[in-house]
């Protein structure tokens, strides 16, 4: 299986890396927001570093879409997995347009209202995974897979 892993740098990426016991046995590539921590953590991985979108530049979610469509066409992953943040928007949209299944995992620190990323991408994803059961309120069709942290 070939996996596309999509995350912002910082906490999102650090959490997605906790899926290593699963993804280490599969072919994979990463699309991440650029940052020193991302460069460090993914030094030994096949990774594409992107400049946005961020919560400072949310419109990059649209301008990133052509890159997302091209990358997914070239790499042809069997599945796309993301836990946000804003970078998830163009890549989940591109996955949808390319008929690639996508899974959104909401991060454990979103226990109040759904994030704007989650509101946009959850309806486009095949599955939504909660980090804590309290996220049921924000994502009724999500799943609980046990404790994350």
């Amino acid at each position: 299986m070939r996996i596309a892993l999509v995350a912002s740098a910082g906490g999102h990426l650090a959490l997605l890396l906790r899926l290593r016991p699963w993804f280490q046995d599969h072919e994979r590539f990463w699309v991440v927001l650029d940052g020193p921590d991302a460069r460090h953590h993914l030094a030994a991985e096949d990774a594409v570093f992107r400049p946005g979108p961020t919560n400072r530049r949310p419109l990059r979610a649209l301008t990133e879409l052509p890159t997302a469509l091209r990358l997914l066409a070239e790499r042809r992953p069997d599945v796309l997995v993301t836990n946000g943040a804003g970078l998830a928007v163009p890549y989940v949209l591109a996955a949808r347009l390319r008929s690639i299944p996508a899974i959104f995992w909401e991060v454990p620190d979103r226990v109040g209202p759904a994030s704007w990323t989650g509101r946009l991408v959850a309806p486009l994803c095949d599955e939504v995974v909660w980090s804590v059961p309290e996220q049921r309120a924000a994502y009724p069709r999500g799943r609980w897979l046990g404790p994350v942290l």
Partner: peptide, 12 residues
């Protein structure tokens, strides 16, 4: 977090 990771893999 290996238990969560493997459950995630089964869902995938």
């Amino acid at each position: 977090g290996a238990a969560f990771a493997h459950a995630f893999g089964r869902l995938v």
